[in-house]
Structures are given as C-alpha cells and as structure tokens.
Simulated assay, not measured.
Amino acid sequence: MDLDAYVAEHRGQWQRLEHLTRRRKLSAEEADELIALYQRATTHLSVVRSRTPDPVLLARLSQLVLAARAAITGSHRFRWSEVGRFFTVSFPVTVYRARAWWITVGLAFTGVWLLLMAYVAGHPETQRALMSEGQISSLVDHDFENYYSEHPAQDFAFQVWTNNAWVAALCLASGVLVVPVFYMLWTNLLNLAVSGGVMISHDRGELFFGLLAPHGLLELTAVFVAAGVGLRIGWSWIVPGPGLTRSRSLAETTRAAMTVAVGLVVVLLVSAGVEAFVTPSGLPTVARILIGAGVWGGFLVYVFAFGSRAAARGETGDIVRESREEYAPTV
C-alpha cells in the first residue's frame, strides 16, 4: 500500500473529523457526520495498523479516534453535586431497598451466634477441643484485650479498615454463587462465638462485650449489609423479578451492589476509627458503648430517613440510569 497516497486520499476526512470533535455543540446533521467519520477513521486505523504500521500515523489516528469517541459518548465532568447525591440518595436508597435481606441476615447471625456462644460457655470440653489450655489462658488473660491496643491507633485503624472492607467486598463479589457468603458469615460467627464463650466461662464476659460493642454494632451491620446485598445478587438470577430476564435482573442488582460497595468503604472507615480510638480508650465502658451505639444508631437513622424518602420518589440508586445523559451524543 502506498502510504502517501492513502494519507492524501483520506486527509480531508481526518481534518473534518478533528474539527467536529473540537466543537462544543453540534447540529443533528453534524452529529451524524461525526459518527460516520469516526467509523471510517477506525477502519483507516485498522488498515494502517495491519498493512503499513507507520508509528507517526498510527499515533495520530489513534489520538483522533479516541477524541472522536469521547465527543460521541460525551465527556463526564466531576461535580460535587454528584457526591452529595450519592450520599443522600443513591447509597441510602439502595441499602434501604435491600433492608429485608440484610436485616434477616443480621437477625439470623446474631441468634445463631448467641446460641453457639452460650453452648461454648457452658461446655468446657468443647473449649478444650477447639483450643489448647495455653491458648485459652492467653486469650482470657491478655490476648483479647491487648488486640485493640498493641499497635499504634492509626496503623490499627488502617489494618481493620482494609480487612473489613475486603470481607465486605468478598460478600458482594461472591454473592452470585450464594454459598461463599454463608461460608464467610459462618467463619466470623464461629470466631466470635468461641472467643465469647471462652471469655464468659472465665468470668470475663463484661470485658468481652465492653470491647466488642463500641465498634461491633456498626462493623457487623456493615458486614450484614454486604452479605444481604450479595445474597440478593444470587437470588436475582435464581428468581428474576416480574417481567425481567435473568441477565437483566442480575445486571440491575449488581449495579446496586456497586453502589453499596462504595458506600460501605466510608461506613467501615468510621467503624475502624471507633475500634482504634474509642474501643481501647480509657473511657468508662458505658461511655464507650454509648459512643458506639450512637454511631450505629446514626447510620440506621441515616439509611431509613434518606432511603425511605428517596424510595418514595421512585429512586432506585441505579448509577447507570443516572449517568445515561452524561454519555449521550452531544447534539
């Protein structure tokens, strides 16, 4: 292929395409022309790449095609109002609409945890089957209490935050398979039940709940939300909603999970701060629990107040629908 001849033949189209991509507003005819020229330019780029891969021409055409694609789809500009809408509409309404799922998960988890913890506390032989005498003594005497204060608070907060965010992400990501969500919930439940049962049987129950409650209320609720939404994803393709195909039902529920994932990052950051700075503090136990209960109650009020209001207006929290106009062709 004669590269110079090819460039001379199509230069006018490329210049016109470049001109249209720089225009802020286009008429309907110009928008159609932009799309047609973009399609031709992508073909030209493919031809040049396969037959005469001149690096200078490839770079120019690649840049032109990318600019034209951005002009067709529309450029999304960051606005602080979008952040405000996310935290006042998208996140709370998505969590609110999934409330039946995460409340059910939370109640089931708490009920099984309390029963299993009571069983472990009342059966020393079970404790010894799960832990050695040395491990039990270490847990009761210092390990459980020292866990919250053995590292600098800011480092501990970051460690807790990343770990809990990872657990929440796994619950959301594996929800389509259903079983992994139950496995992660069971793992956390068993750890809490064994630790609590051992502490209670050695008259350290007040210390256990005094250290767990301040951050645990919000932290576990965030995990319940992630697990509930994750299970909702799995259920969406098992039993699609009325008038929905399995793929559409799964897509809509997964988009909701993306909203929840982003919001829970902030929620878990707050719970990590409480765990690192309030739980091991020298405040009286009652004061620490009241702080944790206040933060937890604030989250619930936030979700139900903002979420119910947005749901009444017909909001769904679907981030794709909200963004469609931003990615529409500019005419």
Rank of each mutant, 00 (worst) to 15 (best):
F182T: 09
A272I: 04
A168F: 11
R51P: 05
A328G: 03
G111E: 11
R69I: 11
Y148T: 01
L177Q: 09
G230W: 07
G205R: 06
T285H: 06
R324G: 03
A251K: 12
P92V: 10
E206Y: 15
G282A: 10
Y147D: 10
Y6N: 07
S81R: 06
I35R: 14
A311G: 08
L211Y: 03
E322F: 14
P92S: 02
R24L: 02
V178P: 02
Y147P: 09
T330R: 13
H76T: 02
E219M: 13
R60I: 12
V179E: 14
H44K: 04
H151Y: 10
S195L: 01
H151C: 11
M1R: 07
R232V: 08
A328T: 11
A272W: 08
V229T: 11
W80E: 00
V274Y: 07
E145G: 00
S247T: 04
M1W: 05
L217G: 02
L190S: 06
G106A: 01
G234E: 08
Q159M: 13
A261N: 02
S308N: 03
A168W: 07
A98G: 00
W296L: 08
T259Q: 09
V320N: 14
F144Y: 04
L116I: 14
V176G: 14
T245Y: 06
S46M: 15
G210Q: 02
A257H: 02
R255E: 04
Q13N: 13
L189A: 09
S174F: 14
E145F: 05
A36V: 06
Q127I: 01
V105R: 12
E219Q: 01
M184N: 06
G317A: 00
I233V: 07
R255C: 03
T21F: 07
F158T: 03
V303T: 01
T43R: 15
R40T: 12
L212Q: 05
V278T: 09
G134H: 03
G230M: 06
H215R: 02
S137M: 12
W102D: 11
P214R: 10
E150F: 04
V225K: 04
A222R: 07
P280V: 11
D32Q: 08
E219P: 10
V262C: 02
Y6G: 02
A193G: 02
S201W: 07
G210T: 01
F87D: 03
G292E: 09
L192C: 13
S138W: 12
T254S: 13
W113Q: 14
V93S: 06
V89M: 05
L45K: 00
F91D: 00
R77W: 00
G307M: 04
P124S: 13
Q154I: 15
M258I: 15
H44G: 01
V320M: 13
R16C: 09
S75C: 14
G273V: 05
Q127A: 00
L17K: 10
F182A: 09
V266K: 07
G106N: 14
Y119C: 10
G228T: 02
S249Q: 07
D203M: 05
F144P: 06
V295L: 12
L34W: 11
H19L: 15
W235S: 02
L218G: 05
G205W: 13
Q39C: 10
G134T: 12
Y148Q: 07
V194M: 06
Q135C: 08
